Simulated assay, not measured.
Amino acid sequence: MSDSIDKSLSLGRLFGIWFLLGLQSFGGGGAMLTLIRRTVIERYGWLTEEEFTRDWALCQVCPGINLTAFTILIGRRIAGGAGAVVCLVGLMLPSVACTILLTVWYAALRDSLLMQAALKAIVPASVGLGLLSAYEVARPAVRESAREGNRWLLLALFLLLGSGSVLLWLKLPVVSVLATAGGLSAFCHSRRAV
């Protein structure tokens, strides 16, 4: 996919696609990432799996809300600056409206037993969606490393499992883990060129 504007896609249609994504964005970031992936790779082919993974990794390095940055990046790649704005507004509009309405509704029903039971079921389902997203984002990176050879596959698996382990047990800042992993990978790849 190039950075040029896709002439066959109107901004209205692009807004509609992202508005529908926004309407379906239940379950947090992991669930939303899965929806975005299916839309931009499988349904419309705007990005390859490798581009998606690379762009998502780039957004992880930036501070702030990663899905917002990712939406802007994808929108810009699809339809330039106007595409970035349209995708962001389309994605955020349903969430903002629902948040306002749900806040009012929850305040009235928060002590209900049915409300408490429903909330208990949402957490495990959200975790499951997050695990699916992690798998779908990791798969192309691991596959590409395997194509480069066993040494690069082992490096990718080490970085994947090592980064998660360091964050889980040592509680280091995410940016330091990302910088270290990126530096280690850059060092290893620079040694290959020598």
Rank of each mutant, 00 (worst) to 15 (best):
L131V: 11
A146D: 05
R139V: 08
L35F: 04
W18H: 15
A108F: 07
E49H: 13
G90P: 05
L184V: 14
E50H: 01
R143C: 10
L21T: 09
F187P: 06
L157H: 05
A79D: 12
T103M: 12
L132V: 15
W56F: 15
Q60D: 05
L67N: 14
D3S: 13
R37S: 03
H189W: 12
L93T: 13
L109S: 15
I5Y: 14
E148F: 03
M115I: 15
A97N: 08
R43Q: 12
E51S: 07
V123W: 09
K120D: 11
I78G: 04
C62K: 05
L109V: 15
A108I: 10
V174M: 11
Q60N: 15
V61N: 01
A156F: 06
F158C: 10
A121R: 14
L23Y: 09
I78N: 07
F52G: 01
S133M: 08
G130M: 15
G183W: 05
P94M: 06
Y106A: 13
A118I: 10
L102A: 10
K120Q: 15
S4I: 11
L167R: 00
F19R: 09
W18P: 11
G164Y: 00
I5H: 13
L167W: 00
I74G: 03
A141L: 14
R139Q: 09
S126G: 08
R77Q: 11
G27R: 04
V61M: 09
G90M: 06
R147H: 00
L154E: 00
L167Q: 02
T34Y: 06
S190Q: 11
P140Y: 04
G29F: 05
E42T: 12
I74A: 04
R147Y: 01
V174A: 09
S133C: 11
I100C: 04
S8H: 12
I65M: 08
E144H: 10
C188Q: 00
Q116W: 01
S126H: 04
S145P: 05
P140R: 09
C188R: 00
I122G: 03
A146Y: 10
T103Q: 07
A97T: 12
R37V: 01
K120M: 14
L168I: 00
P124V: 07
L170M: 11
D3C: 10
I74E: 03
G164N: 01
L20G: 12
P63G: 05
L161D: 01
M115W: 14
I36D: 02
L21I: 15
L23V: 09
V86S: 10
E148H: 13
E136G: 04
G16I: 04
V174P: 01
G30I: 01
G16F: 05
W169Q: 04
R54L: 11
L113Y: 11
R13Y: 14
I36A: 02
W46S: 01
L131M: 13
G80R: 06
G149L: 06
A125F: 12
L113D: 14
A79L: 07
L157R: 08
A146G: 08
L47A: 03
V166W: 08
R76V: 07
E144D: 09
A193Y: 15
G182C: 06
W105P: 10
L93I: 10
G80A: 08
L113W: 13
